[in-house]
């Protein structure tokens, strides 16, 4: 065990994965000599050489398209997109190629590829370095969408992703890159994809969340002594329905918290799942605490990102606070 932040944990996962499997190869902007703008790939160029840690020209659709072609010819590429905000120029490659090739080729061709990208606000990045675009990917059959909320899960989920035979969107909550330190095993391990994690147990209500909002939720309930289940989804597509139902059955009260805008956010899908399948257990409305339906503001980011106050407002609508 070593104390690590998320950047170090991801770096170690990449390093261990590449050392073991020569079919793993990385490409992205400034990931080699510079070690990535967030330093996630620091040191990998000197360990694995420029053939495997590829500094690419500045073209997201080309980088992702090349990754797909590499995967089709037997490699396991890991692509880094510098900021999730810039992935939109490559949406055709993601939605129409990466996600659909297994299906459209009748299963003849597969795309075992990981697309890593930092997402979310909180680093004073304004409109174009702060977006939480997970819904675009969650809406696309063929993709698997994963997002860790801590260093341990980041390493374990990434090592799991490297053994998966379908394309994975690996969303890294950049605000948490260096803010949380945790004991992380030096050896290899995997955290299962598709399984949520109950990170706090309580009886009064359930808070379902993921990514950057997990520590915010945990802080809020601990400060205010809320007796809540907190479910960290970890995988957004496919979601861990059983874990969601289990906590709903237990508490009957649900708040969903995410940073992405409310309309058609992941929370909408969770609400629908609960309403369709567990409505009899509900003892109150399903509430959502989310980013607003606006672009992401620069100076006012603390107003955009859900914080303790808004979480507690929702909590107080469902339970009497002591």
């Amino acid at each position: 065990m070593t104390t690590m932040n998320m950047v170090q944990a991801i770096n170690q996962a990449l390093s261990q994965g590449m050392a073991k499997d020569t079919s793993i190869i990385m490409l992205g902007e400034d990931i080699g000599t510079d070690g990535g703008v967030f330093r996630v790939t620091d040191g990998l160029l000197s360990k694995f050489g420029p053939e495997r840690v590829i500094d690419t020209p500045l073209v997201e659709l080309g980088i992702i398209g090349m990754g797909i072609g590499m995967a089709l010819n037997g490699l396991r590429p890991i692509v880094e997109i510098q900021f999730q905000d810039f992935i939109y120029t490559a949406m055709d490659q993601i939605i129409n190629q990466m996600a659909k090739i297994r299906y459209r080729s009748g299963g003849e061709y597969t795309v075992p590829m990981i697309l890593r990208t930092p997402y979310g606000g909180g680093i004073k990045g304004g409109l174009y370095h702060s977006q939480s675009g997970e819904s675009y990917f969650v809406h696309t059959a063929g993709l698997t969408v994963v997002t860790p909320s801590n260093p341990y899960d980041a390493k374990g989920l990434l090592m799991g992703a490297m053994k998966t035979d379908d394309p994975i969107i690996f969303l890294e909550p950049k605000r948490l890159y260096r803010t949380i330190k945790q004991e992380v095993p030096e050896e290899e391990y995997t955290v299962p994809i598709g399984k949520a994690n109950l990170v706090h147990e309580g009886d009064d209500l359930s808070i379902i969340t993921y990514g950057s909002m997990v520590p915010t939720v945990l802080d809020a309930i601990s400060k205010n002594k809320v007796n809540a289940d907190v479910l960290d989804l970890r995988t957004l597509l496919p979601m861990d329905r059983d874990a969601i139902f289990k906590t709903v059955e237990k508490t009957g009260k649900v708040i969903i918290v995410h940073e992405a805008p409310r309309t058609l956010g992941v929370g909408a899908e969770i609400s629908a799942l609960i309403a369709e399948n567990r409505i009899d257990y509900l003892q109150g409305p399903i509430l959502r605490v989310t980013g607003p339906d606006s672009p992401f503001p620069y100076r006012m980011e603390d107003y955009y990102i859900p914080g303790e106050k808004r979480i507690m407002d929702a909590v107080s609508k469902l339970i009497k606070l002591r």
């Binding site: 398209g65 797909i68 072609g69 590499m70 089709l72 010819n73 490699l75 190629q97």
Partner: peptide, 13 residues
């Protein structure tokens, strides 16, 4: 772009 990636992998392998 896939063709370019496949070509890269050919050389790599």
């Amino acid at each position: 772009p896939l063709a370019v990636g496949a070509a890269y992998s050919i050389r790599y392998k």
